[in-house]
Design a binder for these strands. Structure first.
Lengths: 212, 212
DNA sequence: TTGGAATATTTTGTATACAATAATTAATAC
DNA sequence: GTATTAATTATTGTATACAAAATATTCCAA
């Protein structure tokens, strides 16, 4: 993607993910163009890209609106992510290299070290390490298609789902133990175990909708 | 999508799927625009759409090329389709309505009637009925996300994979019996059976690469 | 007031002109 | 004759102008 279009894309995307542009908001091309400092053309390209990402809806002659996801949609998304990443982990058990195991073990240690972290920076670092952990495994599946499918699924929920909270459900020690199980399954090249434990890991740690 | 852009999209898409534009071919915007009879703008939009579909690759300042898929890529695609549609069928076993069963049974009968068809039209009709069969089931899963994921996966292979042949592997009677099994599993609302038989159906009937 | 038609405004879709980058060809040195 | 560099061409990226469509407003009548 080219300079201006890329700039427009990340600018709009960030504003959506941060919640600045709420679901349902109409995104006027000329306004965005003026604000970002480019012409309408790259803004239009950016909106098409965001549509492909599933972050906006576009209707004929009515432009783009920030897409809104129902609780049900988000449940589906987490379930599908768990299902697909389970599959990826099964593949990874076959194709993983020793260097992958090494990298995963280092990440596991780092995450365990941050076990009782509370500060925002530390929590952000924890999240980053966790993403890296999952990325290594999906990459090890050696399925390009799966990688693209999952990257589309995984990116969004992280931010769109600010509405959801883990509200105490997230047990970090349990999560760390599951990481160790995943590593062990991959180490032993046990596809079924790997799949089951990854699926369980993702399902058990998923955030639930507020029960208001 | 708007008139001109839609026209450009279908025109280019058809040319790719029919094989007229071979993998690797560079798609020049101005040439396409002149040929289709619109300006470059809707052609550019169409190319972005096709990129999202996975039918073309785009590199910065180098425009679009028809994407080429390796045998390995296509294997992955079939495997993932089977895996996801298995999941969808599992869901469908829970959410299916009686009218779905009825529609599936009617389609099964029609396909069985065309059992020993040979003519091109009849084979095309058979393919259409089969697509309809699978669509009803995925729709019955009531997962919007799954529907969009699968529609992106399923559309392409049908045509891109002209290179592949079933070369006698496709046993129509077996396929029809599997259809009956799928219907029965859905009728009895047996999710695991439904998933297993759909997965087996898709895997056993998938075309394999030429063993040249 | 309220409803609806006509008008005006806004916004998107399309075409085209220009700028920036990549690809190609020509020219030069060795 | 070949390789490397410079000049040229082609192609994409961006901006802007115009057309078409949708939305909002005004005006008038009941």
């Amino acid at each position: 993607m080219s300079k201006a279009a890329q700039r427009a894309y990340t600018a709009i995307r960030d504003s959506i993910l941060s919640g600045e542009y709420e679901p349902g908001t109409h995104l006027t091309e000329s306004d965005l163009a003026k604000f970002i400092g480019v012409s309408r053309t790259p803004v239009h390209d950016a909106l098409l890209h965001l549509k492909a990402d599933g972050l906006v809806d576009m209707q004929r002659n009515q432009g783009a609106r920030v897409k809104s996801y129902s609780d049900r949609d988000i449940d589906e998304l987490y379930e599908l992510r768990a299902y697909l990443e389970g599959y990826g982990t099964e593949m990874a058990a076959t194709y993983r290299k020793d260097s992958d195991i090494e990298a995963l073990e280092n990440l596991a240690i780092e995450m365990e070290t941050l076990g009782d972290a509370e500060s925002t920076e530390e929590l952000y670092e924890l999240s980053r390490l966790n993403s890296e952990f999952h990325k290594i495994i999906v990459d090890a599946s050696e399925s390009e298609l799966l990688k693209t499918l999952l990257s589309n699924l995984v990116e969004m929920p992280l931010e769109v789902l600010k509405k959801r909270t883990w509200s105490g459900r997230l047990n970090r020690q349990r999560s760390n133990e599951q990481h160790r199980d995943i590593i062990e399954a991959l180490k032993q090249r046990d596809p079924k175990w790997a799949r089951a434990v990854m699926y369980g890991h993702l399902i058990s740690n998923r955030p639930l909708p507020e029960a208001d």
